[in-house]
Amino acid sequence: MEMPSLRMSARDESSLRDDETFAMNKAKLMSEPNPDRLFFELPPRGIAPKEFVNTHFGPQSGAKNLQFRKGTTTLAFIYEPKTEADKGGIIIAVDSRASAGEYISSKSVMKILDISDNMVATMAGGAADCQFWTRIVAKYCSLYELREKSEITVSAASKYFANVLYGYRGMGLSVGSMVAGYDKRGPAIFKVDSEGTRVSLRLCSVGSGSLSAYGVLDAFYQPQMTDEEARALGRRAIMHATYRDAGSGGVCNLVHITPTEKIRLPSVDVSELLYEFANEIGRDIAYEPQED
C-alpha cells in the first residue's frame, strides 16, 4: 500500500548549497508538491509540530480569531427495510456547525464528504484535517477502481484511511470520521480516528454531541424500519444533540445510501425540528417572563 510519507524539511537544509536551496525553494513556489509524496513543512529546529501548533493556534494562544474550526455531532446507522416498498441501507446524519472556541465560525458546513459513488465519510474533529484526508482517500479509491476495474470495498477504503492517519500519529491531527457505504459485501460503517482506531459498527455516533445522539438512537433504533422512520430517527437524534450541545447546531444534513444509489436529502433547520417536536408531543417550550 502506498503511503504518503513525511519528509523533514529542516533535516537537509543545512547540508545544501545555496543554489540548491534556491532551486528547491523555487520549485516549491512554482508547482504543487508531488501528491504521492505529500510534502509537509515542519517547524524548524526539531520543534514538535503538535506542541508548536497548539502553542500558537490553540485555545490558550492569543490567536482568538485564528483557531481551527471544530465541534460536531455526526451519526450513522444501518437498517433493514421493513416493507417491500422500503429500500433500507445506511442513514448518515450530521449537524452543520463549525466553532472556534465559543465563536460559531460557520453555520453551514457540509460534514458529509463524498468518497465514491456509494461511499461517504463524515467529518468530526479538525475540519481541515477531515476535508484534506478525505480527499486523499477519495483519490486513492478512484485510482483503485481504475487499476483493479472493480469498486473498492468500504473496508479497504477505511483501512487505507486509518493507516494514513496512523502514519501521522502524535503530530496533532484530529479526525473522527465514519466511512459508510454500500459495496459487494453489503452495507458497512467504519469508525476511523486519528489515534488509529478502525472499528466496524452498525450504529455509531461521533463528536461532542454524540452522547445525546446515542441516547435517542438507543431508545428508538430498530433493526427493521421503514425509510421514513429511519430518516426521521436520524434527524431527531441530531436535533436532540444540537439542543443539549453548544458545539453542534445549524441544519441537519442527511444522506441515505440504499443498495442502488446515494440520496442526498435537503437540509433541515434543527431549530425548526425542535419546535415541530415540541408541538408534536404537546410540550410548551415558550418562556413566560415573570415579574420579580
Binding site: R97, T242, Y243, S271, L274, Y275, I285, P289
Partner: peptide, 10 residues
C-alpha cells in the same frame, strides 16, 4: 413591558 423572543434552539 416584558417580552419573550423566539430564538434558535441550538
Amino acid at each position: 413591558n416584558m417580552k419573550t423572543i423566539k430564538a434558535r434552539m441550538d
